[in-house]
Amino acid sequence: MPVLNNKDLLGIKELSADEIKHILDTASGFKDVLKRDIKKVPTLRGRTVVNLFFEPSTRTRTSFELAAKRLSTDVINFSVPTSSVVKGETLIDTALTVQALGADFMIVRHSSSGVPHLLAKNLRASVINAGDGTNEHPTQALLDAFTMREKKGRIEGLEVVIVGDIAHSRVAKSNIYCLTKLGAKVRLVGPPTLIPDGIAKLGVDVYYDMDEGLRGADVVMMLRIQMERQGKGFFPSTEEYFGRWGLTSERFALAKKDAIVMHPGPMNRGIEISSDVADGERSVILEQVTNGLAVRMAVLYLLAGVKA
């Protein structure tokens, strides 16, 4: 089976269910590679991957870097503080400069939504969206789906609850598109200020009451709550937030007995999730990180257009 249809991976919105499944299947193969003693394949030797990060990130950048290295590419990290962006260079000029260095792939993270799309239109290199504004974070949703499939054996029919700041979360958006395309039932839980009006049109159910939203869930995905939202009037205090929408072990008991808990990280313990749940045996938070490597290897591999 060939490869992804597009030069770029900009979002889950643009992918079909078959394409998503194909990425997940490919990732399974790479996960096996990661279990070997020698965790490296020569598949993309000679290709150049540039991590072009305009926003601070450790885990995503490191994950892409390692994924690229496992495929034997050359990897360059290009991040804001060391770049000429601070000298007033335009985004396009920065990207063209990086391309001129011979980049085949550009992994882009930016605080403005749509930046990967703008670069994809103006560059020959394959652009992979590593998180743009409040739009999408497609590889996170792919690794989340991969983890759910691995733990539950399927995605279709699963009751998945996403809790927290839906309005500002690119992780939530990508997960909504991904999970609904794969046939899961998605519930969104959080305060009305953080769940946009009309989002139910995307085929999800909205709950303001967390207990109600958690009942019978197979998967509970907690989102990071950003402290600065408090000052902007989205909720009155982190104490009140945790009391209503924080995941404690008592609340988690409302979900199915074998339900798993996920978090894209970094976590705020005691604000959106309690430590006993985060560190509990049904937490798959660290496995998500491991699976991220396999999924990102699959994305690079498929975009490179290399046949197995």
Binding site: S113, G114, G133, K173, P196, L202
Partner: peptide, 11 residues
Amino acid sequence: EGLLSQTMGLK
């Protein structure tokens, strides 16, 4: 503001 602003991730 509307569903499109949500799905584009724009304010």
